[in-house]
Design a binder for these strands. Sequence first.
DNA 1: TTTAGGG
DNA 2: CCCTAAA
Length: 651
Amino acid sequence: MVLTKRLDCGFNGYHVPPVPRVPKSAKGKRSVRRKKTAENRMSAIDMLAAVAGKLLLEGEGSLGSRTTGVCDAYNLNVKRDHTKPLKNESFDMGSCTNTLGSNDTSQWEVGNDVKLLSTVVMPAPTIIKSDTSSRDVCTERPSLSTKKSNSFISETAVYTKDLDPCGLENRMDVDARLLSLVVPLGNDSVLHSRSSPRCREDKLAVDKDDDKNSSGCAQPSFTTNKAFKPRGLGERRSRISKQLATKFWKVAPTMTKDRELSKTDVEMKPNFYRRRICYAHQRTQRSLFKRRKSFQRCSISASGRGGNNRVNGLSSTVNGMSSYEPEDFHGIIGLICLDLIPFSSDSDTKRYQDDLLCAVKLSIKAFKVPELFVEIPENSTVASLKRTVMDAVTAIIGGGLRIGVLVQGKKVRDDSKTLLQAGISHVDRMDELGFTLEPNSNQTSARLDIPEECYLPPCDFAEPLARFPATVPSSDGVNFDICLGSPLAPIVNCPESDRDSVHSPSDTMSLDKNIKNARVLIAIPSMSVETPPMTPVHKPRRPELIQRRIRRPFSVSEVEALVQAVEKLGTGRWRDVKIRAFDNAKHRTYVDLKDKWKTLVHTARIAPQQRRGAPVPQELLDRVLAAHAYWSQQQVKLLVKSPVAEGRLLL
DNA sequence: TTTAGGG
DNA sequence: CCCTAAA
């Protein structure tokens, strides 16, 4: 049964409907499809489905919450009208098909005029302080008051793209992205299974720590208290969202107050008040999502108690939102935080982006100085050890260093570039952005462009350092982590880190397995001549950790520009094409353009039904084919005229 | 560096 | 998008 409806759902507020547990039998069936996906995907998809259903059908009341977890059951296209100002509270939702239940394949087509007058999630701006001495980072954020949600709508959208576990992505054509999936652990949540002892460790640690913006996990019961209403809450991430968040602070300064208001419709239990939520994030094979995931992970804050909040990929604060108040979560089984990322190249969008990208706040989250030797007698006091380490560190830092900036592993050499141009504004994963400390007198040309990376657990500062001589090695570069949008105490400020600084090998090993998720990636500086050869150097590994670039689908206007340029220049001059049509699009290389052309030609040749991604106007595809044919012919002609070919012809 | 193609 | 041989 296919239903086509135009929906005009202007609903206030939003709550995530209960997501039914996926029956085991069903799980079994689906597991085939989810073969290569992580164990908790189902839950995420279910939640997405639920959210999607609510989003689209709230007010209709017919979608209900019985949703299938089949990952390809949801195909939402949500478009934001970028021509409207951010404050605009409506979205134009594009087509939406929603397949419900395994036995019910109803589909809903949502017309273009459907307006979403509320939000699933609230922007979660975080005020980031780069002041490393400040531990009390502001974590205020907008509340989730459903009543107020109309005020902060604009950036919310549902999109399944990044939840795409099974290739759904390729059928999505909207540039909105699911930002993150926040899943307070509940009994119903499959994700719970991932919350592992580590998570509980964190929980305990956090409880001790109580309120230091550290993170932890909620116990399952925490989110299953039925006395509380569900409410939507979200956090936002990603390149744009980071800035959006900032923006939201500006446009909706009242948001902080809303939390107070929100208490009116939620019962609040004081003893929950400072608990932390444990989030789990859906895994996916898709690199984009991985990236996002890592990004979230990267924001995991170090616990104030010296590293008991290790990065583990399973828990911890995400997004610098270190302490959601429990009232935000009561009864919520799943939350999906979504964001909408504008198309990258439309002119409107560009303005929009530029507008948003004006503020990129960085905070240095971890500062590691590897390969630092400290020699100190056994009978020294801890205090003297600290002093020694501090001296050594100070010697490095005070020694006149300059900062290098790495974006996606590549050094940004042009200091005149803007963050936007350098792509820094776009990084959505923390390890895409790195800094290096380099000696000012950089005669040695040892390089750090492809840093070897190793993992060091946070806040185990003293331990590794103790092995190193106090003489400052003339390291060519030292990486340190920075964090976008994550308020947390810098590791160098972990005063009492000693206690927790020793890790069992297995601990390290398991962490190492999560190296991709780990946020504490440091570079081992290239050894200088003075460095003793016996220096314990980590095995070179994972030099490939250079991040894959963010996927940025070509917009129609970009395609248009590309087609036009190729029509003019032909298919063998990608550099010229780049200069001609994409000179200002720093993120489009000529290889990208060549690749895009390749896919365009392919797209143009296949049946429209086979096409995936953002639909390219047929007119453009026709031009692609025409240009391709023309230039192919030109090449042949050129070949024919060439001596070799001529010679062959003569033969 | 740029092109061209496969992955 | 990535990787890379070849130019």
